[in-house]
Design a protein around this nucleic acid. Structure first.
Lengths: 136, 136
DNA sequence: AAGGCTATGGTACTTTAGTATGACCCTCAA
DNA sequence: TTGAGGGTCATACTAAAGTACCATAGCCTT
C-alpha cells in the first residue's frame, strides 16, 4: 500500500516535470514537438504496463481460491478437510496420524468418510476430484 | 497474429495523427500544451495496459506448461510417463493396465521405477512431486 | 435429559500398492 | 554381434489402504 502511494506520488511529480519541460522546450524552440510527445507516449506506455502487471500479479497469485461453499455442500467436516489436505500432500495414514496426534485408525475412518463424500474409490482419485472442485 | 499487426498499425496511425494535431493546435494557439500532453499520456497509459493484458493473458492460459527437460533429466521413459499421468487421474494399477492393454504386473513395475525416479514413497507423493516439478 | 452429530479408536478383514527378483523379447548403437 | 536400455510379465512377499462394525466420549439442540 505504501509503495503504491509512493509510486503515484512520483508519477504526478514526473507528469508536472514533463509539463514544464514541454512548455520550456517548445517556447525556446530547442527541441521539436515530436520528440517531446514521443517521450511522453513511451513513458506512459511503460507506466501502463507496470501498473497493469502489478494489479494482475496480485490477482493471479490468489486466482484459484478455495470454494468453501462446496466443502459445506459436501458436508465435509473440518477434521476430514485437514486429512484431505495431508492426503493431497502425499502423506500416508500413519504420517497424518502423527501430524494430528491421532491414531491411524482414526485417520482411516476419516479417509473412508471422505471417499464416500467425494464419491472416490481411492485417495488418489479423491485428490483429483477435490482439485477439480477447487476445494484444495 | 493478424490482430496484433492491425493494432500496431492503428497505433502508429494514431501517433502520427497526434503529432499533426499537436503541432497544429500549438501553432494556432487554440489549445494549450498541457491538455495535448495529458491526452497523449492517458492514451498511451491505456495502450500500455491493453498490450500488457493481452500478452499476460496468453501467458497465463498456457502458464503451467510441462517441463519436458525435467522429464528427461529424471530419465522418465515415455511408458512411465503415461503411467504417471494415469496415476494423477486417480486410477488404480489394474485400471491403468486395462487402459494401456498391459498386465497389472507391468504397471507395478513402471510405478516402482517412477517412485524411485521421483524419489517418492507413495503414488500420492509422486503426484505432489510431479506437480511441483511441472511435469504433469 | 435424550437424541444427533462429530471425533476418536479398536478389531478383523479384504483389497491395493509396492518391493524384489528373475525372465524374455526387441531395438539400436558400438 | 554383443551389450545396454526399454518394455513386458510372473511369482512371492510385505506394507499400506480401505471397509465394516462396534464402542465410547463430548458437544449442542430440542
Amino acid at each position: 500500500m505504501k509503495k503504491t502511494i509512493l509510486v503515484f506520488g512520483l508519477l504526478i511529480l514526473a507528469l508536472l516535470l514533463l509539463f514544464q519541460f514541454g512548455k520550456y522546450t517548445i517556447i525556446s524552440g530547442d527541441i521539436n514537438i515530436e520528440i517531446v510527445i514521443s517521450v511522453i507516449a513511451v513513458v506512459f506506455f511503460f507506466v501502463g504496463i507496470y501498473i497493469n502487471k502489478k494489479s494482475l500479479n496480485t490477482q493471479t497469485s490468489a486466482a484459484v481460491d478455495i470454494d468453501h461453499n462446496k466443502i459445506k455442500d459436501l458436508e465435509i467436516t473440518s477434521r476430514e478437510y485437514e486429512v484431505l489436505k495431508y492426503i493431497s500432500e502425499g502423506l500416508s495414514n500413519k504420517e497424518i496420524g502423527e501430524r494430528l496426534f491421532l491414531s491411524e485408525s482414526t485417520i482411516k475412518t476419516h479417509v473412508s468418510n471422505l471417499l464416500l463424500k467425494l464419491n472416490a474409490k481411492r485417495r488418489t482419485q479423491a485428490i483429483q476430484i477435490a482439485k477439480n472442485l477447487n476445494i484444495i
